[in-house]
Design a protein around this nucleic acid. Structure first.
Length: 513
DNA sequence: CGAATTTGACCGGCGC
DNA sequence: GCGCCGGTCAAATTCG
């Protein structure tokens, strides 16, 4: 039994408290130990009072230096914030232009009939989204393509407070978006491994998302295939669809990642190249649910749990499970739409963007693999930088900060958030989302979500415009923005906090076994 | 006693 | 055609 897994992850309160301290604090922390050390030593030395005084002076001097550094960092932070704001403003302007263009274009009969099919629209503006977190019922699919499981039927009530981190890619533009609904924050604290690694690998089949919905759906592959120049590509697509997967890597010390769903283990195997056995689970929330997952520990670091999801839930999910479900669905959709664009990953990269964009924008820790029959997106959040604690305890702005730990795509969402609530961002720049999700400080779910949706829409519009090819290359814009945002440590810490929150929540609610 | 997990066997795909 | 390997099945075992 994996009951143990379900228990809420222990909250590492002490580490969370630092959410607000800024970079300055981080640096201060690093300096303080030295001070205390010397102070302690003086005490031990009862004889040399003079030496003690000397040490104290040295300590004071160090303190002074630390203060100065704090000031410097604060200044730097405010500068960064202002730059961020101006950048965002500029971005919004650009987006508006594209939005209008897209609006005009939308009136054209280019939209594929297969509506729902997430990411099905090959030529139209497909919005591929990868979301982590739950979202309020209903609003989820603004862009048609989001078939997150939550929308499938989540009870509205339950989903009132949910956290969602979404990433959307507007076809053609590569725009990404993230949305953040508030979450009781409750979860916030709880990240199991707090430092988690999330790997999302989606199958083209993702259709999965759609497929999951039993009735509606048309075969995964069929749903998304593009009628146009299909040819051999279609077959390939369909095949890929069958293997669509979403894998999530999380640093977790429990047997399985608490994703909120109920799973039943049906097998275990030792796979080649990894001494750790791979466990196979099947979703038991509904008898006919096709979703399966594989859980395996990373050979290099056994604290890292690699969970690969396959398929789409065909039933209502508990609130706690919608986050992961949405993520896997969206990721699958993204891959799917990508595959429909062209027949090979190479061409994908060269052409429209879904996959290419995803691969490029997610950053080094995220991989989108289309080579094999199982296209996979890997989001590696195991990176230390992704861990809230470490983030908050260190000086984010210090050189060497690992900005790549967070997918650039998510940064867009972050940006959206910031754009909608600049003031909030300014006040809490160190870890805005961290407060939101983790601290639960003055978070406003509706606003956040609205902001996210707003951004989503813009992003998709942008994509449409980009597709038209009339305007400046959106991809370039978003890429630039993505880089800028991603390099923002506060975003990283925020994201880490959000993920942590999700994970924690999942653990509490999940009835995993 | 029922349900879930364990674990060896079986099956199908893929590469050589 | 053969062997390897990943994935699944199902009987046996364990647990609550």
């Amino acid at each position: 039994m994996e009951v143990a897994v379900e228990r809420p992850m222990p909250v590492k309160e002490e580490k969370r408290t630092d959410a607000k301290p800024m970079a300055a604090l981080g640096s201060a922390r690093s300096a303080l130990p030295i001070v205390f050390e010397s102070f302690a030593s003086t005490q031990s030395d009862a004889a040399g009072i003079k030496q003690e005084e000397r040490t104290l002076e040295a300590a004071k001097a160090e303190m002074g230096e630390v203060r100065e550094e704090n000031e410097r960092l604060k200044t730097m932070l405010s500068r960064i914030v202002s730059q961020y704001q101006s950048l965002h403003t500029h971005f919004l302007d650009v987006v508006k232009v594209h939005e209008q263009a897209a609006a005009n274009k939308a009136k054209l009969p280019t939209m594929p009939p297969a509506p729902a099919a997430a990411g099905a629209g090959d030529d139209a503006d497909d919005l591929v989204s990868l979301s982590l977190g739950t979202r309020p019922n209903g609003s989820a699919r603004r862009k048609g393509h989001e078939r997150s499981s939550s929308s499938s039927g989540g009870t509205a009530a339950d989903e009132g407070h949910q956290l969602s981190l979404g990433l959307g890619i507007a076809r053609g533009s590569g725009a990404l978006s993230a949305s953040a609904d508030d979450d009781k924050a409750s979860g916030a604290s709880a990240a199991p491994g707090s430092g988690g690694v999330l790997n999302l690998s989606s199958d083209s089949s993702s259709g999965a998302d759609d497929a999951a919905k039993p009735a509606a759906a048309s075969p995964p592959g069929a749903a998304r295939k593009s009628p146009s120049a299909g040819e051999g590509a279609d077959d390939e697509v369909q095949q890929q669809a069958k293997k669509a997967r979403v894998s999530v890597r999380v640093k977790c010390d429990t047997p399985t990642m608490p994703d909120g769903c109920q799973w039943r283990k049906y097998g275990q195997k030792i796979s080649k190249g990894n001494p750790c056995p791979r466990a196979y689970y099947r979703c038991t929330v509904a008898p006919q649910c096709p979703v399966r997952k594989q859980v395996q520990r990373c050979a290099e670091d056994t604290t890292i749990l690699i969970t690969t999801y396959e398929g789409q839930h065909n039933h209502q999910l508990p609130p706690a499970a919608t986050a992961m479900a949405s993520t896997t669905s969206a990721a699958a959709a993204m891959l799917t739409s990508g595959s429909t664009t062209s027949s090979s990953s190479a061409s994908l990269a060269a052409h429209h963007l879904p996959l290419a964009a995803a691969a490029g924008m997610f950053g080094p820790t995220t991989m989108v693999s289309t080579a094999a029959s199982c296209p996979t997106i890997t989001l590696d959040l195991t990176n230390p930088a992704a861990q809230p604690h470490s983030l908050m305890h260190s000086s984010p702005y210090a050189a060497g900060y690992e900005s790549k730990a967070i997918p650039a795509a998510w940064s867009n969402g972050y940006m959206a958030y910031g754009g909608a609530h600049p003031s909030y961002y300014a006040k809490n720049s160190p870890a805005p989302l961290g407060h939101l999700f983790g601290g639960g400080v003055s978070s406003r779910p509706e606003q956040l979500y609205a902001a996210a949706q707003s951004y989503l829409q813009r992003a998709s519009s942008l994509g449409g415009g980009g597709h038209g090819g009339a305007v400046a290359p959106p991809a370039a814009v978003t890429d630039t923005l993505a880089k800028a945002i991603t390099s923002d440590p506060s975003f990283q810490s925020a994201l880490a906090a959000a993920i942590t929150s999700v994970m924690g929540r999942g653990g509490a609610a999940a009835a995993q076994k």
